[in-house]
């Protein structure tokens, strides 16, 4: 999807803060698809992912005052809102109940096998699948499931230092893949 440049990012942020409907429509038209692809990498049910997308735009709308352009791009800020909302959804009780028979690790270790879903084939997650196994697990747990590095070290019974080193190495590889 190509972004139709109508506003500069500071203009867009300012208009959103002024509660401009046309600025919101512009933001939605240009970024909803990209954000939905992020959400789908974590919430692999399309209806639910659309609910999360709606929730994410409500959060963007309500929290636009707290966006700090010195810390990064608007998209990065929105991406992290989408990722956190997605992880919260996946961790919620109702979601867990709906997939109670599936073990967490099943997702983690499902390497290109039969349990691979559509979401595994899009975006970042697809790239993550091309990583070495020991890296992929860490990115899955950390990025897609929102566990802290401490939690991952405990979960996988490997030292925290190793988690940090491997995760950074994984991300470095990921960057090479992402680079246009």
């Amino acid at each position: 999807m190509e972004v139709v440049k109508k506003y500069t990012e500071p203009e867009l942020v300012q208009l959103l803060r002024q509660r401009s409907q046309s600025a919101f429509a512009y933001l939605y038209d240009n970024y909803s698809g990209a954000l939905l692809s992020i959400i789908l990498t974590i919430v692999n049910e399309e209806e639910l992912a659309n609910d999360v997308l709606q929730e994410v735009f409500v959060k963007i709308w309500k929290q636009i005052e707290s966006y700090d352009s010195n810390k990064g791009r608007l998209f990065t800020w929105m991406l992290n809102i989408a990722r956190n909302a997605s992880i919260d959804t996946v961790r919620s009780k109702s979601f867990q109940n709906s997939r109670q028979n599936r073990e967490l690790t099943e997702d983690v270790y499902a390497a290109g096998g039969t349990s691979e879903t559509r979401t595994d084939q899009i975006g970042l997650r697809k790239m993550v699948h091309s990583l070495k196994e020991e890296y992929r697990v860490l990115v899955e747990l950390s990025y897609f499931q929102g566990y802290t590095q401490d939690e991952i070290a405990n979960m996988l019974t490997i030292p925290l230092g190793t988690v940090k080193t491997r995760l950074r190495a994984a991300l470095t590889q990921l960057r090479e893949i992402i680079k246009p």
Partner: peptide, 20 residues
């Protein structure tokens, strides 16, 4: 950040019309 944005835009999924 720019690469991440481009990558996400490139893999965009059209949302359900009801959301907007």
């Amino acid at each position: 950040e720019a690469a991440l944005e481009q990558q996400a835009l490139a893999t965009a999924v059209v949302p359900a019309p009801r959301v907007k």
